[in-house]
Every structure is written in C-alpha cells, then in structure tokens.
Design a binder for these strands. Structure first.
Lengths: 204, 204
DNA sequence: TACTTTTTATAACAAATGATTTAAAACGCA
DNA sequence: TGCGTTTTAAATCATTTGTTATAAAAAGTA
C-alpha cells in the first residue's frame, strides 16, 4: 500500500522520554528531540503531531512503564512489606540517578501541569492512583493488625504520598543516603501498631 | 555625576520574582521579563547582566522574604506549636494560591538546580536551613518532653522536610483542603510523646 | 511495470529568542 | 553653562524556535 515506517514507535518514544525527562519540556527543542530520537523533524511531526503531543505520548509511556505493573507487583506482598519495599525501591532509584532526572511525573506536575488542563488531569490522576494503592495497603494492614489503627487510612495514605513526592524533590538537590533513608524511618514507625511500639520501646 | 536610575531595584526584582515564579525560567523570555518589570531589555541587561543573573537575584529576593524572618518568628513559640504553625501557614498559602505557583524554591530545585551547580548550592543550602530549623524545634521539644523521643531529631527533621516538599508538589495539582490537612495529621501525631498517645487513645 | 500512498530528507519559513548597538536624554559636578 | 557619565529608548543583531513545503525514496497493489 505505502512506504512503511523505518522506526519502531516504542523505541523512539523511549528516547523521547529520556530527553524530556532529563531536560524538561521547555528546554528541549524539536531539534534536540529529533537528534535524541534519531529522526528528522518531519518524521516527528508526521508520526506524532506537534511538540506537545510528543511530550504527551512520552509521559504516558513513562507512566505506563513506571507505575503500570509495579503497583500491582507490590500489592501481592504483606501490606507493610509492600509499602516499605515501594519506598526502598524509590530511594534506591533516587540514589543511583546520577543525572538527577528525578521522577518525570513530578517534573511534569511542576513544569507543565499548572499551565495545561489536560496534563493537570493526567498527573493528578496518576497521583490519585498511587494514593489509592497506599490506602488499600493500609486498610489491609489495619484489618490484619499489622498497621496502626489510630490514624485513618485516608490520612496515612496522604502522608505516604506526600513523603514520596518529598523524597523525589529532595533527591534532585540532595541525593544523600542518610537523609533519604533517615526520613522514612519515622514514617514507617508511624505505621506500626501501638502494641508493637510499646514492645520495641521495652527493648530499647 | 551621572544619570540616576528611574526604577527601584527592589520593586522591579519583586516583579521579576512574580514572573519567574509563575512561569518558570525557560518559559519566561527577556521580553516577558521586561514587560513584567516595566523596563526595557537594555535596562535589564545594564542593571543585572543576563537572564540567568536576573533569575539569580530574583531567587535570592524570594528566599529572603520567604524564609528570612519567618523561621525566626516561629522559633519563638513552643517547639511543637512552631512546627504546627509553620505547616498550617504553608497549607493556607497553598490553598489560597489560585495561580498554583507553588514554592519558587521547589520550582527552582526541579527546573534549574539539576543543570546548574550554583543554583544547586543555593537551593540545597536553603533546604538545609529549613531542616536545621525543624531539628532545633524537635530537639527543644524532646528536651522539655513535648515531643516524642523514640525517633532521632535528625530523622524526624528529615521527615518534616520531606513532608513540606511533598505538600508543595501536591498542592500544585491537587490543592484540596482535606488532602493537605489530612496528610499532616499522622505527622503531627508522630511528634506526640508515647505517654500522650496512650492518653489520647484512652479517650477515643 | 506503472500507479498510489506514505515516509523520508532537505530546505525553508515566519516568529521569537537572548543579547547588543546606537543615539538621545538626564542627571551631578566643574 | 558645559563636561562626563550613566540610563534610557528604539532598532537591530545573529540564532534558535516550532512548524511546514518540496521533492525524492520506498514500499504494496494493479
């Protein structure tokens, strides 16, 4: 019928992700993008539309591979394990992020979402999903007695979401192991039921 | 000796702050800046240097008026009051921030600091000062018994710093009163000494 | 093989970008 | 009043920006 594409859409999208992720939206020009993706600008416009559309697709691609199966995988664990493993993985990734790219979703939340309704919805939707994941974990833990019941699951899920975002911001200017691993200790302690807290205390 | 300035440096710096704060560094052109400051581009270059230098001065100006006396004012209160008042003020400001500008320091931490050593130092320095403020409050509270002693002051100060940054990120896409006020409740509870926690529990 | 369709490569477009030039205007000091 | 100096205004500089024509190249179908 016609000439076929020379490039693999997923491959070039991944390259677009890396470019936008590292430099952000405004600081990345179409030519930067073309070089990073190994395409001509004409091919980009033909395949995706304009610059904003490429960013839109790139963000979806990032979200898909960053939150897609991950949340589900963690949820198979014991509630408190799931939460702790989630945070430890975020911290590990932050500490090995030598380019200090942070989290592309958080970057989008600050650079593009405030001035673009559609991105606002996308970002806020993903954040709500993460919050819901935390809430499910906490509710499960409160039911089996492994998580403290004095604070509501909703409030604690919000605390975890806030802490997560805080870590991702902090890591971009101060990616220090002691700082990041230290700041989650009190958060994990907050999850512990009172009885266990007393027990720990008696051995201290 | 020579022709005097027609503008007040502090006034135009404040206008530059508002422009950069709302739109960020890359999305603000020199002409945007000139219009916002009520100056010609020539005057800007003559008075400040290049675009980066204006941003540098604007960020200093913002930090000065945002963190300058504020931290000191809070520190005059009782330790736990100081921390709680600090967070309530941040949340109030976030909820009344109709333009969703967030915190210019956090914005800088994500947009410019990762690619600019000098801004890296500035941002990380201010964050360290906030952290130190939290730590001093916590240590004072631990000494007078109003703050829990089971977690180290360093760890809890990190938690507060992370929570603060998380709130500022979250507020830019989801400035919801319930969410923000809810997420700090478990954090404040974490500060409470165990004895008090038990007491609260007995009345619940 | 010729036709149709899509992708490519190259070049170009108008507009915007950061930055500077030029010359007029405005002050202090002699 | 004139001199020296700095600020201002307007125009202009070379690049870069996002985007689009143009035409050649590459495939499937007839």
């Amino acid at each position: 019928m016609a000439r076929p594409r020379e490039f693999d859409e997923n491959k070039v999208l991944q390259l677009a992700v890396e470019q936008f992720w590292e430099r952000g939206y405004e600081a990345t020009s179409i030519r930067d993008l073309a070089q990073a993706m190994g395409l001509t600008t004409a091919s980009i416009y033909n395949a995706f539309g304009d610059k904003r559309a490429v960013y839109r697709r790139a963000l979806d691609f990032y979200v898909e591979q960053s939150f897609g199966d991950r949340v589900g995988r963690f949820e198979k664990r014991l509630p408190r394990d799931a939460i702790q493993a989630f945070f430890h993985e975020i911290i590990d990734r932050s500490l090995s992020d030598t380019k200090r790219k942070g989290c592309m979703l958080v970057n989008s939340a600050l650079e593009v979402a405030p001035h673009d309704e559609e991105f606002q919805r996308v970002v806020s939707g993903v954040l709500s999903q993460v919050e819901a994941f935390f809430r499910r974990c906490i509710e499960a833990g409160q039911n089996d007695g492994s998580i403290d019941r004095r604070q509501s699951a909703t409030d604690m899920a919000g605390t975890l979401l806030g802490t997560l975002l805080g870590i991702r911001v902090l890591a971009r200017t101060r990616p220090e192991k002691n700082l990041l691993e230290g700041l989650i200790r009190p958060v994990f302690a907050m999850l512990e039921p009172e009885s266990k807290q007393q027990l720990d205390q008696s051995f201290a």
